[in-house]
Simulated assay, not measured.
Amino acid sequence: MKIASLEDDEAHAAIMSRVLHEAGYECATFSTGRALNRRLREEKFDMLIVDWELPDTSGRDFILWFRTHFGHDIPVLFVTARNMEEDIISGLSAGADDYLTKPIRTNEFVARVRALLRRAYPSAAEDSLIEVGPYRVDVPQKTIHVHEEPITLTPREFDLARLLFQNLGRLLPRDLLMQAVWGRGAEIASRTLDTHLSRVRTKLKLRPENGVQLVPVYSRGYRLEPVAARDGAAVAVAGDV
């Protein structure tokens, strides 16, 4: 899932981005309301995380604007150093769904994010059991079955497969995949990711006849696309690259 973080403190933005990536989410960071405003007109995010003190606006005013133009379907988490009761009430009244004070505690932060996403997207957020065609991904047990046959994967191969199935149809950037599986700052060659994904494709038989295909997007990342059969031919639901 894609999360937009509106935070002008570079250090704090980096911490939140790292934590979200390690939790399996895609995070784009913006330092001004104007920058996020422009991106929202071009791209859809599944969740917003907003600071209060910003260079060109206040987080509260930004949320008011966002709710006016985009409605209330997308969850918003306020993360700010303000911890007075009146600030919390003001932030929630502006349209935030939850309020967290800095400095964040990483486990609590991830738990709040997951809770908001589960509430907003009950069928898509962090499913413990993911079923796509002949595939059954059991996240807690870290197992994958294809046509009821268990597939042996290494821990990293499973983590890559889990991310792909949890984000079916979404482009997953290369850096997100590497950070989520190997950790932020890990020095791995780009071909290492490609090699692991090639093994995942082979072991799981990610082929159109099984209803999915793993598509590399040159220099950007990978996308697991659902494929529908039509007149004996496989057709990518999400479109060709």
Rank of each mutant, 00 (worst) to 15 (best):
M1H: 02
K2M: 04
S5V: 14
L6W: 05
H12E: 14
A13R: 06
M16S: 05
E22V: 10
A23W: 03
T29P: 11
T29M: 07
S31E: 03
A35S: 13
L36A: 01
L36Y: 00
R39S: 14
L40R: 07
E42K: 15
K44I: 10
D46W: 03
D46N: 13
I49S: 01
I49M: 06
V50Q: 02
E53D: 04
D56L: 09
T57D: 06
S58C: 11
R60W: 06
R60P: 01
R60C: 02
R60Q: 10
I63H: 09
W65V: 01
T68K: 08
G71Q: 02
H72W: 01
H72C: 00
D73T: 04
P75I: 04
P75V: 03
V76S: 01
L77C: 15
A81G: 13
R82G: 12
N83Y: 07
D87T: 05
I89Y: 07
S90K: 14
S93V: 07
A94M: 11
A96V: 13
D98H: 14
T101G: 11
P103W: 07
I104L: 01
R105Q: 14
R105D: 08
T106R: 04
T106P: 03
N107R: 13
V110A: 08
A111M: 15
V113A: 13
R114N: 13
A115P: 01
L117Q: 09
L117V: 08
L117T: 06
R119H: 13
A120C: 09
A120T: 00
A125T: 00
A125P: 08
D127H: 12
S128N: 07
S128F: 14
S128Y: 05
G133H: 02
G133D: 02
G133F: 10
P134Q: 15
P134T: 13
V137Y: 01
V137R: 00
P140S: 05
I144V: 15
H145T: 03
H147E: 10
H147W: 08
E149I: 14
T152D: 11
T154C: 10
P155C: 06
R162W: 15
L164P: 05
F165C: 09
F165A: 09
G169Y: 15
R170F: 06
R170H: 04
L176V: 12
L177C: 13
M178D: 12
A180E: 06
G183Y: 12
R184P: 04
A189W: 06
A189V: 01
T192N: 04
T192G: 02
T192I: 03
D194Y: 05
D194R: 08
K205L: 13
P208C: 15
E209L: 00
E209P: 03
Q213E: 09
R220Q: 13
L224P: 07
P226L: 07
P226H: 11
R230H: 04
D231V: 04
G232F: 00
A233L: 13
A236F: 12
V237H: 08
D240P: 14
V241I: 09
